[in-house]
Design a protein around this nucleic acid. Structure first.
Lengths: 150, 150
DNA sequence: CTTAGTGCAAAACATTTGCATCGGT
DNA sequence: ACCGATGCAAATGTTTTGCACTAAG
């Protein structure tokens, strides 16, 4: 499946979501979705804002924050809090679920999948009689010094 | 070991840390440590600030934020980012390492330990050739409806 | 035509910073 | 006495909000 197909699927999901929730289908909302699905990796609202200022459809920060809520709600976007203040986002339709390793020095973000996290969630559901909605696992690490230096 | 002993140990660790890093042993710093180690559970800076306004040693927010950095640095306190904005802290000397389940509706925080998280970290260290410094695992969940209602 | 959505600027909020003063060493 | 630490208030930077205007339905 090409990334264009993924964008089109995302558009359709968003459209249905907007209809079902009686939200209006504004050009701004679809422009934001498109911008996000055209982009690789994590981004914050300010970056998205700058990027869209240079494009066809200029949107305000208020609209961006508003639209991110909608996209979160229909699971087209995930939100992370790697550092302290700035929230990071990433597209998530047809993207494999994953967690993150943050390299302390550089802020570089690596992605990984480990099935054991699912097992942990299953254990917790039984232990506490809860229904797990989602999770956030961030590993903070630094790169190993090469042994060849010794 | 009583909680007084734990407080005294913490005080000693802090004292040594301050000496070794050529920081001054001010009454404010020890008052903050004491307030934290007298408290059960998670707290934010504003709560700590209010609590200390009613006590013997009144400290400013600036000093609180400053001192939290020191306590984090010498591993007497852990910092969490459960929600969006407000950072939550908890004492951690002689407290078992644990992760958190956040109940979505109420904001209630449960604690748990699962050895599989250590295994995941070990796998990642090999896979990416990194040294894991620490991690943050938050499970967001809601309480199950009772089956007896059916 | 109705009213949700938009852009802008102001407000809100937790946290940081500048600066004069205080007090550990 | 020196200069790091404090308290206060102002600044910061991200996110939210109020309001007048625009445009989707």
């Amino acid at each position: 499946m090409s990334s264009d197909d993924i964008l089109n699927q995302a558009r359709e999901i968003f459209e249905v979501y907007l209809e079902q929730n009686r939200h209006r289908k504004t050009p701004e909302r679809f422009a934001i979705l498109e911008e996000i699905y055209t982009y690789q990796g994590h981004f914050d609202v300010e970056t998205l804002y700058s990027r869209m200022q240079n494009g066809d459809c200029r949107v305000s920060r208020a609209t961006l924050y508003n639209t991110m809520e909608l996209l979160l709600d229909c699971n087209l976007v995930r939100k992370h809090q790697f550092g302290e203040k700035i929230a990071q986002y990433e597209k998530c339709h047809r993207v494999r679920q994953h967690d993150h390793v943050i390299i302390a020095d550089t802020g570089e973000v690596l992605e990984f999948c480990d099935p054991r996290i699912q097992q942990i969630k299953a254990t917790l559901e039984e232990l506490f009689d809860i229904e797990v909605l989602h999770h956030s696992l961030n590993i903070y690490a630094r790169k190993r010094k090469k042994k060849t230096d010794a």
